[in-house]
């Protein structure tokens, strides 16, 4: 075991330089392809953390990525299949960047 550890490559990645390939089907972050969206508010109703806000009148769709728990419930329920679960995580942000 000692020899193996000495002569094998490290088990970790040099993170900022090398990132791991995301797995297929990994729950990373949510995007809405808004041009297909019908603003039916189903995702807003199904969201367990109330992270999604849809306005039918103004035709806006917004998600609070800090509240979102990437549970996939909205993607499952979307009738237009315009919500998509990306396999990549949303990058970390500061509060100032968020409110921008």
């Amino acid at each position: 075991m000692v020899l193996k550890s000495l002569f094998s490559k490290p088990a970790t990645y040099m993170y900022p330089l090398l990132t791991r390939e995301p797995m297929v089907g990994s729950r990373g972050s949510i995007v809405n392809h808004v041009d297909q969206c019908s603003y039916c508010t189903l995702c807003q109703k199904k969201c367990p953390t109330d992270a999604i806000v849809v306005d039918r009148e103004k035709k806006t769709w917004a998600i609070d990525s800090m509240r979102c728990i990437t549970c996939n419930a909205c993607v499952d329920v979307c009738p237009k299949s315009c919500l998509e679960m990306l396999t990549t995580y949303s990058s970390s942000k500061t509060a100032a960047e968020l409110s921008r």
């Binding site: 972050s29 392809h33 992270a51 806000v53 917004a62 609070d64 968020l98």
Partner: peptide
């Protein structure tokens, strides 16, 4: 009824315009 306190952040891909 739960109240949403934080202002949501727009996360729109492609054509959509932020509010």
């Amino acid at each position: 009824e739960p109240v949403i306190k934080t202002t949501p952040v727009v996360n729109i891909k492609e054509k959509g315009k932020p509010q």
